[in-house]
Every structure is written in C-alpha cells, then in structure tokens.
Design a protein around this nucleic acid. Sequence first.
DNA 1: ACGTAAGCGAGACGGTACGTCGAGTCTTGGT
DNA 2: ACCAAGACTCGACGTACCGTCTCGCTTACGT
Lengths: 212, 212, 212, 212
Amino acid sequence: MAIEQTLLGSGPGRPPGRPRSERAERAIIEATLDLLIQEAGVAGVTIEAVAARAAVGKTTIYRRWPNKEALIIDALATLKGPIPDLAGESVRDDLVALARAVRPSQDPRLDCVWNIFGGATKHPHLARQFKQTVVLPRQEVMRAVLRRGIANGELRPDLDPEVAMAIIAGAVTMRARSLSPDEDLPEDFADQVVDTALRGLSSGSAPSCTGP
Amino acid sequence: MAIEQTLLGSGPGRPPGRPRSERAERAIIEATLDLLIQEAGVAGVTIEAVAARAAVGKTTIYRRWPNKEALIIDALATLKGPIPDLAGESVRDDLVALARAVRPSQDPRLDCVWNIFGGATKHPHLARQFKQTVVLPRQEVMRAVLRRGIANGELRPDLDPEVAMAIIAGAVTMRARSLSPDEDLPEDFADQVVDTALRGLSSGSAPSCTGP
Amino acid sequence: MAIEQTLLGSGPGRPPGRPRSERAERAIIEATLDLLIQEAGVAGVTIEAVAARAAVGKTTIYRRWPNKEALIIDALATLKGPIPDLAGESVRDDLVALARAVRPSQDPRLDCVWNIFGGATKHPHLARQFKQTVVLPRQEVMRAVLRRGIANGELRPDLDPEVAMAIIAGAVTMRARSLSPDEDLPEDFADQVVDTALRGLSSGSAPSCTGP
Amino acid sequence: MAIEQTLLGSGPGRPPGRPRSERAERAIIEATLDLLIQEAGVAGVTIEAVAARAAVGKTTIYRRWPNKEALIIDALATLKGPIPDLAGESVRDDLVALARAVRPSQDPRLDCVWNIFGGATKHPHLARQFKQTVVLPRQEVMRAVLRRGIANGELRPDLDPEVAMAIIAGAVTMRARSLSPDEDLPEDFADQVVDTALRGLSSGSAPSCTGP
DNA sequence: ACGTAAGCGAGACGGTACGTCGAGTCTTGGT
DNA sequence: ACCAAGACTCGACGTACCGTCTCGCTTACGT
C-alpha cells in the first residue's frame, strides 16, 4: 500500500536518481510494529517516534506513506500471515484451517487492524484499499471452499455462502476481539466453531433429517 | 460513564453551588454524535469542535468526562438502543430479536463503537468499562436465552453457549462492519443467520440424528 | 508590532477569557535577545529555542507574532533606545546627540535590525511597518533640527535637509556596521562626523565665503 | 569566492577528468540573481530552487560553493560593477564617480548585499571575506582620492579620510536602502551629496575662512 | 580505441525548524 | 459553584530546505 516509485510506462529501466533504501523501509516497518505492541495501541505510534527508533528522517517515511494511518495499515498487513495452504479434501478441515488463520494466535498485534478499519474511519479511501488487498482475497478463498462443499454435498444445497462466511469468520473475530491483551484464544476454538456451525445449534436439525 | 457530581458522604442534601446545566450536557452529547456522523469518523471529533458546536466551554466538558474517549463512549452508549423485550416463547424468535438489536439498522453511527473498542486500544481501561456497561448486559441476556433453549430441548444439549453467542453476534457484526457507509444490512439478515445457525451448515447433521 | 488583542469597538471593557500573560511576553522578548547575542546572529534565533528558553509554548509566541521575523523586529525595537531629549539650543549639539543615538554604543545587538530591513526582504510588509514605527520618528526629529538650523541661520539657507540627513545618519550607521563584533565606535565619532559635515570637506568652502 | 578546481602544484597542466561546465556555472549565477529579485529577498533563494531553475543538480552547485551564503555573495559580487575609471583631475569629480558606483542605479538587486553583511550575521567568516574582496578595494580607491585632495589643497588639511569616507559612502547607501523596491535614486543624488559635503552644512564655514 | 577519472542530472538520505492543530489545564469576569 | 471564553504548556503533525550520498551516464584526456 506504500507509494510506489512509479515508472510511468518508461519500460523496465531503473528510475533515475538514488534508489530507495530497502534497509530504511524494513527498519520503519519494524519500528512501527515494535511501537504498536510496546505502547499497546495505535495511539503510541508517532511518526516522530518511528523515525527516531528506525534511525530515519521523517521525510523518508513520508516519501513512502502519505500519513500515519497508511503506514500502520501497511505494517499490519505484513503481520497478517499468508493464506494457509488447504488440504482440499475435507471441507470441514479447510474451514478450520481458514478460521485458525483469522488470528494467528502468536501475534496479538494483528487485532489492531480491525480497530482501524471497521466502517467509519478517518481514511475511508485507505480502508477500502485495505479491504481490497487483505480482506477480500481471504474471503474469496473461503467462499470457494464453501461452494465446493455445497457442490459435493458436504454442505446443504440451500446454504447462502455469505451467511456462512459471516458465521464462521464473525465468530472467530468477535471472540478474538473480546480477549484481554494477555489472554489468547483457546487452542481449539476454531474447531469448536466450525463443528458447531456445521452441526447446527438446534437439536432437531429437522430439515435434513426429515428427508424421505 | 460521566463523572458524577459526588456527594462524599455529605448526606442526601443537594450539593452546594449552581447545579450543572442539563441543557449543556445534552448539547454536548448531541454535538459529539453530530460530528461523529458528519465527519464520518472518530478522528473528526475534537473537543474543541464539540465545545464550539454545543456553544459550551471546554471546561464544561472536562468537568463531566475525563477525556475525549470517555465522552465518545458515553455518546455512543446513548445510541445503543435498549435491550429489546423478548417474547420468551420461541428461542428462535428471541435470538432473532437479539441479533436484530445488535445493529439497529437505522443508525449507522453505532458501528463506530466497535472500532474503538476491540482489543488493543489507546485506553484499555475505558474499553473494559465499556464492555462492562454495554456489552456484558446484552451477552447475559443472550446467554440466558441459549440456556433456556438447551434446557427445554430446543437446542442441542451439548451446545457451548459461548460458541453459539460468538456465532450469532459475530455473524451480524462482521456483516455490518463490511458495509459501505451508504449501504445497510438486508432487512432479514438476522433471520437468515439465526436460521442457518440453528439448522447447521452441513447437509448430514448426522450426530444428533444418529443418537441411539 | 505584536498582534494586538483587539477589542473591535466594544468599548473600554476587558476582552473575555483569560488575559494574556505579561510574564510570558517579557520572557519571550528576553529569550529572543539572549539568543541573538549568544548565537551571534539572526540565524541562531529559532522559535523553538526561544520557546524552550522562555519556558513557553510555541503557540504562545505565534499568538502574538505572525512569524519569526516579526518577533525579532519587535525584540530589537525594544532595544532601540528612546529618542534623546534635545537641548534645543545649539543645532550642532542636537545633531551630535541624534547621531550618537543612532547607535547606543553599549548594545551591539541593535545592528542586526539594519540587516533585516534594508530594501528587499522576505517581509516587505513588516519592513514598512518597522520604518513607520522606528525609523520615521527619528528622521522627523532630525529633520526638524535641520530646519531650525536653516531658519535661524546656523545652517546654509540652500541646504537640502534630506541630503544632510543622509550624510549624518549615513556616516554613523555605515561606520557602525563595518565594525567587528567586539569593536565599538570611537567615543567621539558622532562629534567628528557632525563637525566635519558642518565645516565641509573642501578647503575653500568658497560659496558661502565668496558672498558679497 | 567559488571553490577553485585546485591544481596543488601539479604544474600548469589541466586536471584530469571531465572539466567543469561553464554553462552550468553561468546558469547557476543567473538563476540565483533571478530569484533574488523575483522573490524580493534573500529568503526566497533556495538551493533547490536555484538548481531547478538552472536545470542543474544540487551537487553541481555544492561542488563549486560551500553553502548558500557563499553562492549569494558570489552572485552579488558579479553584480557589483567594476570600480570606475577615474579621470584623476578634479577630486570632486572623482568622488562623484565613486559615489555613483556605490549603487549602479539600474540594478536594484545590489542592495541586498548590504542586508546580508552588516555586522552580526550568520556567517561572520564569509562577511569578512566579502569585505576583503568587495568592500575594501573600493574603500582604498576612495581613500587615495581623498588623500590626493588633502595633499593638493583641494580638501582641508585636517580632514580625517575615514570620516569623509563614511560621510560620502554612508549618505549614498543610506539613501539607497530607504528606497521602495520600485523607486530609484534621483539621478544626481551623488552629485548633491558630494557638493553638500564639500561645502559643509554650516553657513559660516568659519574655520577655513578665518585663517590669517 | 579505450580505460580512467571527474563531471553531470536526478533524487533519496538523515536532519532541523517551520507554522498549525489539538489535548487537557488554568484564569478571568459574570451568573 | 457554576458558566463562556480564551490563554496556557506540551507534543505531534506534515512540509520545506539543508547539505550529503548514491545512482547511471557523459565527457575528455592520456595512453
């Protein structure tokens, strides 16, 4: 999401002038994340503090990101673990894998991102961009899994994938965000959620049982 | 959550001096909410702007709330509609009613609150307080409904109420927060979620049927 | 030259709100002058340094002066000694008194002002204002003395007061500005200049002698 | 005052490598002067602006001048017209010629220089250098003229050349620096000053006339 | 003809200071 | 004891230049 050093269609040639320092870029991201956890929140992240900790001029930060929010987003995006590889056999197992990836339990910093981009924020433009690059790809994968389940009969044929997605992803994130900073999600919470959702809450589960 | 005009054991008598202006208090809350929606975000809410718009001195605000966050929480708490009265007959209907109340669809401002208090925030202390006063009471009601359902056989006996709560509340809020500012939740989303959750996602719903 | 706390025709009543701190104002001016001499130049005067040394917020400075230059001018204007009282008997003695006042020898800081406001500067507006408040009044006094001399016969009747002013004031300031920072004007330089100017440089002094 | 491309005793041979571009040097000086007048002040002269306007890299400037001040001095030194050729007959005429040269009326940019180097400045070192190369040579010429006048009887024998110099040069520069940017010195101001100074201000001019 | 040494435009680098904004506190006179 | 107004200190914001440092390229000589 950082400002790209544009080439303007001039072909593959390097742009003129001194190239940007990769070292600086890394140091800035690192410093940002450090401050996020150390200061326990977005409020503690100051461009000036980031610059100082990364031993970098403020200019060098602003050359890459237009403002503080954008920097934080980018920093958090690097935290968001990769989309997990799915076994592709059992739909249930794939859903559990995805649910687990919502919150890689080892990194509590990730949660911040959800506080910054919910609905109304200071920078709706960036929120949109964040959704594009981080949220949507994951949703797409889950949607595919759900469709596969519907197609191969593992899931009900009349299931609305959007509702199902909201249920699984929503349950995990909601639970994650109600944790204290020191707590952590129970190891098997993703499993529980997926199993419970698959089975259904009601004792009857009528429709599918009342089949002929 | 506002600072109460303390009595400190001085008996039941009115505190001395001029009483606080109710008019000012209302104007402040109103101004805060106006700014929240008008500026489309927490960032646009400035104590100075609130004071100006409410035609009130900054002092008058700080006399009542210790800081900006507290004011915003309080303002949002007034938005959060009351806990709905439940018919108490069908567990399914009660759950739908609660799910609907998560997001009184007429007021998009409500969403902000979830952005402010997720996990790591600037003021964990206030987040905790917010949870106490706003979130927990609602959870308690839902938990009661779920327990009732388990007890009377409408829901599976082995259901974990926490997981169920995460599923229903999570699905609705997750969906709400992925809306554009102008969109709104589909009228019957809460119904869909509850019905889907009750029924289960899987086609088999085996476990409960295969009981001896 | 500072920004006045305007009353806008509201009569003699005090403006509302907390009044500006005289203590702060004095401290700011003092700090500015200290830095001017200590750092030996305008370049060493930083708003941030002034604020720090005066134990004052930057805002408090900017509330009173629109920018750095204006502050420095005002600070220097306080240095510029008052217009001396003139005996009013001998024109020669009055001119010497005025010439001496151009540069109150005890204060080398004064010179800076001339470096800031000569002709072309960053802030022509302020330069004009400075001329109005500081330079013109002094010129007026000297002009009056010269006119008196022309009228009462002490000076030539065909003398152009502007030229005479340029000669006397110019000679002193030029000499002053070519001093090293540690040097000082010779005690009696003003006397020498006035006497030399009165007498004339030429040995003949013809015109006035060759009169009939 | 520019940094010379040093030879270090290697004889008369050209230094190796690509020689410096004269075109760049000229463009830099031109750009500097343009900015000086266009922005009406030293403050508007930015190395970056100069580089941009001269279509030159900043490096190319810094290779030649150690800093901004030095560049400006050098630029202004090119403006300062050459020391005029003096007829050498009438002392009065020579003084007028020199007085005129103080401010070649066609170029208002020249004045700036006096604003930069008066007494206390940012770079006393450079001010000294400027005096050495620009001011002193002119003073020397004027001093010689004055001495010649004293010797050949055109000027009073007891005249102090320093005082006389201050009077003539001071009068012209003082008058010049009190001009608006659009005004210009009256054509014959130098003449007036010299004549007035020679004649003396006083009506009596006694001393030289009352000689035996 | 070709290598080598220095110049060139461009632009990123670490800094310092700018002038602005807002937070939360303090101080007036008036209700 | 309250109120509005507005000044107070403090600290971060995002911008502009400074003077330095690479980049890849372009001269011009001395082999």
